[in-house]
Every structure is written in C-alpha cells, then in structure tokens.
Nucleic acid binder design. Structure first.
Lengths: 198, 198, 198, 198
DNA sequence: GATGAATGAGTCTTCATTCAT
DNA sequence: GATGAATGAAGACTCATTCAT
C-alpha cells in the first residue's frame, strides 16, 4: 500500500510531465518549449522535472514512441478483419488508416515525422511487452511476404521504404500543402504503394 | 567602378557569411551555431550580419537551396548523355547519382534533408535564372512522362514521392545506418523506384 | 543493550558520513562537494545527514580537528624518545615529522591548512579527553621553555608563530611548488626555526 | 580621440567592476558574492561582466595583486629613507609597516591572506612595468643579503618564510584574535624575525 | 556601410532543506 | 530514527539585437 501509492504518485508526475510537454511541443514547437513552461503547465516544481527526465528531448522521444505505437496499434486493430494472404490489401489498409489519422491530427504528424527514427521504433517494439500486437502484425506481414516469395530482408526493407515515403509525403502534403493537398496525393500514393508491392 | 566595387565587396561578405555558416551548421548543428560564431569565422563584425540576413535561418534556407540545386545540376550534367524517352533509366540514374553524393557527403545530407521543403525548392527553380538547367531537365522528364501516358499532375506527384522517399531513406540508412547500410538498401531502393515507374 | 546498539548504529552513520565527506573533500574540494554526494557515498538517506550535522562545514571542522590532532599525536608518539630539556631538538623533530607527513599526504595538507584555526585547535585540545597526550606534550614543552627562561606567554606565541609559518610554508612549497620544492625549502625552514628558538 | 575615448570607457567599466567586487568580497565574502550583485553595484549589465572577466575569481586575483602590490609599494616608499646595508632594520621596518596596515584594514587582510600565492605575486612583479619600485627593493634587499654572506637562493627562501609567517600570524591575531591580539603578538613577531635574520 | 561594446531577458541547472510516510 | 521525493530559490551563463561611433 505504501509503496504502491508512491509509485502511483510517481507515475502521475511522469504522466503530467508528458501531457504538458506534448501540448507545448505541439503549440510552440520543441525548441521554443522551456523546462519552466513544462513544469508550470504540469503544476510541478521545476527541479522535479530532472528527477524524471534529463532534458526535454528525453520527453520528446518518449512521446514520439508513445504516439506512433498508439497509432500503429489502432491501425492494426482495424486491420485484423482483413483476410490473410493479401499483402497489398493489408499494407494499403494500414497506410490508408495512418494517412487519415495524420489528416485529422496534423500536430501529431508534425511531432512524429521530424523525429521518429526507424531504429528507435523497432527496438522499442521488441523490448516493450505492451507492443505484442505490433509484433504479431509484423509476423503476419512477414509471413505473407515470405509466401509471396520475398526474403525476410527484402520484406523488411520494403516496409521501411514505404514507411519513410508515407511519412515524408504526408508531412509535405498535409502540413505544407505541397505539391498538392493530401486529398489529391492520397490516391496516387496508394496506387504507387500497390505497384511497389506487386 | 566605385559602386561595382562596393557591390562586389557586399557579395564578398555575403559569401563569407554563407561559407562560415555552412561549416558551422555541419560541424555543430544549426541550433548550436550562434551569430557570434558565424561572424567570428567569417571575420566580419557581428552587427554586419544583420545587414545581410535577418537571422541564421535565412542563411540556412539559402544554403539548403544552393546545395540542393548544386547537387541536382551536377546530376543533370551527367544524365544528359542518356538517350531520351526512357523515364526509368533517367530517373534512376539521377537517384543513383544523388545517393552516391549523399554517401560521400553525409553532413550535407544532414543539412538538406531535415530542412528542404518541396515548395521552397520548386519556387526557387522557377524564379532563379541560374537554374535553367533544372527547368530544362524538368521539361524533358515531363515530356517523357506524357509520352508514357502520364498526366502532368500525376507525373509531378510521382516525382515528388520519389524525392521524398529517396531523401528519407537516405537519411535513415546513411546517417543512422537503420535498418541497414546504404550499400544494402540502395539496390532495393532503385528496384522499387523502377517498379513505381512502370 | 538496545540503546547501546542504537548508539553504535548512530556512531556508525556518523563515521560513514565523516569518511565519505573526507574522501569527497579531498577529491573534489569542499565547495564542490554536495550533501547529496556525501550521503550517496555513505549509503545513507539524504535527510539523515541533518540528523547528525547541520551542514557540510560542521563535518569539515570535525574532520580537520580529527586529522590534525591525529597527526600531532603520531608526531608526539615518536618524540617521547627524545631526552627532555632540549627545546630546539624536540620542536624541530616534531616539525620534521609534520613536514614529512604533509609531503606524503598533500590532500590532507590542502584540507587542514586553509581551514585550521589556532583557537579551534587549542579549545578542542583542552576539552576533549582523547587529547591528553597533546596536553602532556604541551606541558613538557612549556616546562622546557620556562627552564630556558621564556615566560609562558612568550612560549605560547613562539609555538604559535612556528606553527603558522610551518603550515603556510608547507602549503606553498608542497602544493604550489613555490618558490621551491619542499625538499629545497625544508633544511632552510628547520634552520630558521632553530634560530628562532635560540 | 575616438579610440582613446572607447579605451577610457572600457577601463572605466573594468574599474567599476573591480571596485564593486572589492566591496562585496569584503562585506559578503567571495563565495557569497554573485555576478548579479557585482554588476548591480557597478551599474553595468550582467552580460558585460563576461566581456571583462571569465568569472569572479579572475576579478579576485586581480584585486589581490593590486592590493598587495599597492601595500608593498607604500611600504617601500617609506623604507627608502633607511640607510642601506642593514638587512634586519629594513625588513623589520617593512614588516612593521605591513602589520600596521593590516591592523587598520582588516578586510584587506582577509582578502589577501587566504588567496595570495607567492608564485602569482613574483610573476606579476616581474611582468608588470608598474612594479619597478618593488623590483628595485628586491635588488636592494638581495644585495644586502649577499653582502651579509647569503646566497641568492637562501635569501629568497628567507624572505619567503618571513612573508608566509607574517601573513598567517597577522591573519590569526588580527582577524581571529588568536592566540592573542596583534598588539601583544607584534613585538614577539618582530623580535623573532630579527633572530631569523641574524 | 561597418563596427563591436553593451545590453538584459531568458534558460538551464543545481542543491540545501523539508516532510509525509 | 530513517527515508528520499519534492521543492523552488538562486545563480551562472548565453546570445540575439541594438546603436553610438
């Protein structure tokens, strides 16, 4: 009881720092967000920040990981209804879901895209028990790829390239509206991915 | 004579500021580079900086534009030998050239990728007379695409998607070595682009 | 039994705080040593520190006293073999011993010299029962001085001046190597003290 | 005219920083004095401090050097009337002067004693043209010592030991009144120095 | 146009101290 | 007595920007 309450309290502070940081990163940008502002918004003493994170970039990394796996988990949850075996359909379904999410949540895209690294992402998926859905999806996709004649390595690289492309195309078309709006770009993007997978 | 000399002098200062900034941006990063450091390296008084640029980000934008068009012009210069008509070959040749350049110049990739925007790029190409080679290349490519049955819009989007993918795949594989080195990624990337263009 | 165990435990904590502080004061300096670092090194909770000492300077004073009386007691222990009556020989023997000790233990010199005050030293000698050897030495020396015709007051001042000179000459020559190393300075210092005592 | 005015202005700021620091070091102590307080007292912007000194300890060193050479120059000025040849008289005259000065200016003693290093002192005397009187005095004293049969090395060490003794005896007796007041200690100290020089 | 000394707002970071458990 | 999470006051230091020369 004693320990659990303190642990809860600790998690509470962490949570509040994450939430405050998230809002500030989105509204003012990472560089313009100060530790003072974060702790003020979180109603926590400035010094306490340093008990949880060494600097704001540690918070940022945790946020990016949280948000991107959250998104992926949601996409997966929807994709399970699809029949197995057809890689294109599954990948395109997920990409479609992700694009829609980013269209609705520009700010999250802003945060994730400029900062998410593939290595960090993969490592976290393998390490954290919460992400077993994502690992399962990976297995399904890899299995389908193998059946379609891809080596594991080529499958991974293909997924990687698709993710990179989707991320930066979304960024440009959703945030900057360049060279066209996401509505115009989306069908072409999906079509292109389909070609890549054939 | 007197005026031209002053203009020349002015350009000289601009040049020195650009060079000093470039070196510092590469070695210390943009955020860590101060106006003081730039002017010190350029052997120019601090206040003089503001006669040429409003802040360091203006220098950064100019640099990115310079470097990326420079790169593109070099790639084009090599690609003119290719026979017209075959879009895939031309695009892949240029992408190949760009990948090799980035492999040799990691720092430049670091600077360009995180900051280059499509809109800025396109706009500068249309505005600046120095970039007529790039405009010519664009015409050639678009013409080839049209012959292959693409609309102008679709052609532009395809190019856009390829550039975005190449940029972010290079960044991840060259800088972060994730999920594999550029040597491993490159053949898959080129192959994928070929599929996209078929 | 219960109480004695608690007292023992308390002394144990005190001891650990002293030892940890000593090491940190020597290696990082007093100003740079934090309460956190001391309790961490002593494996004691931060708050517990305040149950034993009001601040780090209280620890410092205790340490200086401990170390300097320890040194003096060791010197005395060696000097008892000397025949009584010859003041110069006894004083020079002790000074010699102290110089050698400081030469071997620069860090201790660093700690003691800049912080030891005569008054604190004398007071502690008179108050603490552990220091009876030092009181005895003092009696012997004063007695010898009286026999040589010194008043008690003059004897005390002479001792005082010698101690001050030895301390600061050692500090300068051992720590700073200025104006010469202790090896060069030592014979001159002993010779000068002999003159003072004649 | 243009340059001279700016130089003057620069010196003015330096001067004001020195004066403000001096007063604060004396009244609050070095550790307790902050850069903010110094610049506030000097009516100078905080950032300007760093244009002149890297930290407060650089100011402290300069102050100590200034004050101690100032004192020595004053002592010398008075001692020139003495006939040459008699080392004891000259040295004791100067020591006497210094003791009196410290008696009148306890705070200066506080600042100088705990921080003056022989090496720093000697080096500054040799380097700075303003200190030629001190260099001349040194020549006179050394010459007198040589005539009295001392080697240059022994003479230097003797002077060094006297300075160290005078400094720390003054500190203890004037500031701490231990083991006696300076009035009581002074005759014994002078007498002891006379013995050292015989 | 060029200079660079001066400015001071603004940020990070540390750390002695408290106090609920 | 012991603990250590939380506090927030306090200080060092930076740096974009200005402006008198």
């Amino acid at each position: 009881m004693y320990i659990s309450k303190r642990l809860k309290n600790k998690d509470d502070k962490r949570e509040r720092l994450l939430n405050a940081s998230y809002e500030l990163f989105l509204s003012k940008g990472v560089v313009e967000t100060t530790i003072s502002a974060i702790t003020r918004k979180a109603s926590i003493a400035k010094g306490t920040f340093y008990l949880y994170y060494p600097d704001k970039y540690a918070v940022l990394n945790e946020l990016i990981l949280n948000k991107s796996t959250e998104l992926l988990k949601a996409a997966i949850k929807e994709s399970v209804k699809l029949p197995r075996g057809n890689i294109s359909d599954r990948v395109i379904f997920i990409v479609d879901y992700v694009i829609d999410y980013f269209t609705e949540n520009e700010q999250t895209l802003l945060l994730i895209d400029k900062n998410l690294s593939w290595g960090m992402f993969v490592e976290s998926i393998d390490r954290n028990d919460d992400y077993h859905e994502i690992r399962e999806l990976r297995e399904i996709i890899f299995h389908d790829f193998e059946e379609a004649g891809y080596s594991k390595k080529r499958a991974e690289l293909l997924i990687f390239m698709i993710i990179e492309m989707v991320g930066s195309v979304c960024y440009s078309s959703i945030i900057l509206k360049e060279p066209a709006t996401i509505e115009e770009v989306k069908p072409e993007l999906l079509e292109t991915i389909r070609k890549m997978l054939d």
